[in-house]
Design a protein around this nucleic acid. Structure first.
Length: 826
DNA sequence: GTTGACGTCTTACC
DNA sequence: ACGGGTAAGACGTCAAC
């Protein structure tokens, strides 16, 4: 018998003699690579009709035990059937646990179970790795003591161990969890990036590949002989380049191979080139090539390597961080700037045939630094990846790529057992179609503000508003009772013209969510005294993101636990709660001036901050369940403006300044990337001056300066570029807007255009006959003067006119050079 | 043919 | 391919002139 410590990293499975085996790659405490082979029970659930008698169940059991199948050349049969008392959607059910030989046959067995006594078949659509983790509880990225049999050139499992590039291969007998924190795990990471002449997969050649690991930096290339740049390793050809890359990957043998957009570009590109030369990209630990899976509609696919986790950082950052980021795009450069304070090396892309002598070193340096950035970003995000994996309990490969709704779902799936729940099935194509037909339901409440410049403002907001609403009112698929008053105790709310009822007896989904919210609260509290604890910070963040995604999950048509009514009720309960708080605030002598979804802004009306904080405490003591208000802050001044039409106050658009002079701007053009920089800076400065000074005098002078500069053509083109993202394939646009025209121009130039590309253009002077904006669009490097009229009337003026309107200043007249009647008139 | 009103499409944000 | 609410620009369409 062999013993080892073990941390599971990658999960994969294989079939041997008709059975499924899990193959888990990880490390031991001495950082040796270990592969564990294990198996687990394979089964599905058949939920029985309530009315069926014990005798009949016994008969049914015997009938099912006789099922034998011959599918896809595989002999398989039901091995055993047990009867269990389980829960399904929080209701007690009798269910048959039907054991089979092979996980892949469960579907076919389920098809054979169309008996009238069986009302539902469940639990055969989870994926074997997920099923294994649930069944055995050998959780990813946790430490274990393993006992097993060392496989050394064994013929067992078809001699699998001899083909595996690992230090030990063990057939597991038993394992025991080691307490948290006893061992650390520092993964071996290799970041890579490749450069080429063409951006289209299958065109052009790979010119260089950079590799960065712990104490290792290298650029491989067959180009240029001038190599002042010390990290360059010269090879003779593209073939040798690819082969050398493979050699280094094998030699370094990382736990994680890290790229940035490598699912969509680097690896597919490399594959296409390798195929051309008939090179096998055999970097998997079992000698296999990367597996390329197709992406969903519009999405890119994923690339999986046996035993090595390929992480495309772009995907992980996108799902977990993008909504909290300042960067306008997820381009490596911007992401690196925001998270590392570092950026790409300057190098303007050129076809390799046009690069001369000393420019090559710049190119190598550029290429190498991209890998450095990817490596450092991985280090930065490792605590998050680790904690997400531990909290959700799915293999880290999936965690690095799944969206938040999948994460929520996986979290549920891995916690069902605590509730004795049978998993719900994934909706099929038709089911999704049905769900989508329902259309939207009523959402949040937004208070219509009265435009103006205000003083002394306080803001309260609900902590995890929708999450705590779901918990407080027990809102979920399994607790929904319909829209007729039930006999049992219930929570009810009216929305969309009908009343929805939910059971008061706790459902598993709200219970799980409650647990997350409470844990997060605990971690957040602990963080106050140990701010640098990256792991706790990451775990707290993982809980926060899961909580925030829970509401969206229940309203998402693709979810196993989709419940439109629960989502609608969540919005409705939250709406009721916030309206009640607004009333309380006003009753107390404050004045509410704005509110949106989960936050309320009100005037302090001469009361002290202390009084306000005590009032908050009192409010909290009256709130139901785990609903909780917190103080967002006190603000010296704030402004709300009118809509363009000028009649009412604009919602979701305001600016605040706190006692330390810190600005908080929401919804204004300043924060929108589809406005040119000039307009955004202008607006930002105008807002700042007005909020700081409490009047418009300086701001107005500044505005006049800008007008003068535009008219004198003194503005740099850079400041006038408008950036808009392509949201769909270019030929699907019904309305041909300016950015579509710009995208078409880029296409003609063979620039890489895709869904998601950020299109940049400016509006130029053209002949009088061209009226539409799209007829004046030019790409940033095209010749032409900027269109003074357009930038004045469509960028500069709209950015500030509503703001100056607060002071009865008509900017339109100002711009036309007319005398300001309004100013003098008042 | 041009103009303006109004609806639709689209993006980006809360 | 997580939700709804909202602002706003530019195009598209149609009727009035």
């Amino acid at each position: 018998m062999s013993y080892t410590k073990f941390i599971p990293i990658d999960y994969d499975y294989f079939d041997w003699q008709g059975r499924n085996y899990i193959k888990i790659t990880g490390r031991n405490e001495k950082n040796k690579r270990v592969c564990i082979i294990d198996s687990c029970n394979v089964y599905l659930w058949a939920i029985l009709d309530d009315s069926i008698k014990d005798k009949e169940i016994e008969k049914l059991k015997q009938k099912i035990e006789k099922i034998e199948l011959d599918v896809k050349g595989r002999q398989t049969k039901v091995e055993k059937v047990e009867i269990h008392n389980k829960n399904f959607l929080s209701k007690q059910v009798k269910a048959l646990k039907i054991f089979a030989t092979n996980y892949k046959d469960l579907h076919d067995i389920a098809d054979k179970l169309d008996m009238k006594e069986i009302v539902k078949r469940r639990g055969y659509d989870l994926g074997f790795a997920t099923h294994y983790i649930i069944e055995k509880k050998l959780l990813p990225l946790n430490w274990y003591d393993i006992e097993g049999e060392l496989l050394n050139n064994s013929i067992e499992f078809g001699g699998i161990d001899s083909g595996l590039d690992v230090d030990f291969c063990i057939k597991m007998k038993s394992f025991k969890k080691i307490e948290d924190g006893k061992y650390n795990f520092k993964p071996k990471v290799l970041a890579f990036d490749l450069e080429c002449d063409e951006f289209k997969i299958g065109e052009g050649e790979v010119i260089m590949i950079s590799l960065v690991s712990d104490n290792f930096k290298k650029v491989l290339t067959f180009k240029e002989k001038n190599k002042k740049f010390e990290n360059v390793e010269q090879v003779k050809s593209e073939v040798e380049l690819i082969e050398k890359f493979l050699e280094y990957v094998k030699k370094i043998s990382p736990d994680f191979l890290v790229g940035y957009f490598s699912d969509g570009f680097d690896l597919p590109y490399l594959k296409a080139r390798a195929e051309k030369y008939n090179i096998k990209l055999n970097i998997g630990l079992d000698g296999s090539q990367p597996r390329f899976s197709k992406g969903n509609i519009g999405g890119v696919g994923t690339v999986k390597i046996d035993g090595i986790i390929h992480v495309d950082l772009l995907k992980f950052i996108q799902t977990t961080y993008s909504q909290y980021m300042q960067s306008e795009t997820l381009a490596l450069n911007e992401v690196a700037k925001e998270f590392l304070g570092d950026e790409k090396k300057p190098f303007k892309f050129k076809h390799s045939s046009k690069i001369d002598g000393n420019e090559w070193d710049k190119y190598f340096e550029y290429n190498l630094h991209d890998s450095v950035l990817a490596y450092n970003l991985f280090e930065k995000f490792w605590p998050d990846l680790l904690e997400f994996t531990r909290v959700i309990q799915e293999p880290v490969f999936n965690i690095s790529r799944n969206g938040m709704s999948s994460n929520v779902e996986d979290f549920i799936i891995h916690n069902l057992e605590k509730f004795n729940e049978i998993p719900e099935k994934r909706p099929g194509y038709d089911e999704i179609g049905e769900r989508r037909k329902f259309g939207k339901y009523e959402g949040a409440f937004v208070f219509e503000p009265t435009p103006g410049l205000y003083k002394d403002i306080s803001i309260f907001d609900f902590t995890s508003c929708y999450g705590s609403t779901i918990v407080t009112y027990n809102l979920s698929k399994s607790t929904f009772l319909g829209n007729k008053k039930p006999k049992q105790d219930s929570y009810s709310i009216e929305t969309g013209g009908e009343i929805l009822y939910f059971s008061t007896s706790p459902g598993f989904f709200p219970e799980m969510l409650k647990n997350i919210i409470l844990l997060r609260k605990k971690f957040k509290e602990e963080l106050k005294s140990e701010k640098d604890n990256a792991v706790k910070k990451a775990r707290s963040n993982a809980f926060k993101l899961l909580t925030n995604a829970a509401y969206g999950y229940q309203g998402f048509f693709g979810a196993r636990y989709y419940c439109r009514e629960a989502a609608a009720a969540t919005a409705a309960f939250a709406k009721r709660a916030i309206k009640e708080v607004i009333e309380e605030i006003n009753k107390r002598g404050y004045k509410t001036i704005y509110s949106d979804t989960d936050s309320i802004a009100f005037l302090i009306q001469g009361k002290t901050q202390q009084e306000t904080k005590e009032f908050l405490k009192k409010l909290n003591s009256q709130l139901p369940g785990i609903m909780e208000l917190e103080l967002e802050g006190f603000f010296k001044r704030g402004m709300w403006v009118t809509t363009r039409s000028g009649e009412v106050g604009a919602k979701k658009k305001y600016a605040l300044i706190d006692e330390n002079g810190k600005l908080k701007i929401r919804g204004f053009e300043t924060v929108r990337r589809d406005w040119c920089n000039l307009a955004r800076k202008l607006q930002n400065n105008v807002i700042k001056m007005i909020l700081e000074d409490g009047n418009e005098i300086n701001a107005l002078n500044y505005f006049k300066e800008i007008i003068k500069k535009i008219k004198a053509r003194e503005i740099e083109r850079e400041e006038l570029i408008i950036k808009t993202q392509l949201k769909k394939p270019i030929n699907e646009y019904k309305a041909i807007s300016p950015h579509v025209i710009a995208a078409k121009k880029m296409q003609e130039r063979k620039m890489p255009i895709d869904m998601g590309t950020l299109i940049e253009y400016f509006v130029a002077e053209t002949r009088e006959t061209k009226k539409l904006v799209r007829e004046k669009v030019k790409l940033p490097d095209e010749k032409g003067e900027y269109n003074i009229k357009y930038y004045l009337e469509h960028q500069i003026l709209p950015a500030v006119e509503n703001i100056f309107q607060l002071f009865n200043i008509n900017t339109k007249e100002l711009l036309d050079g007319k005398k300001q009647m309004t100013l003098e008139g008042f």
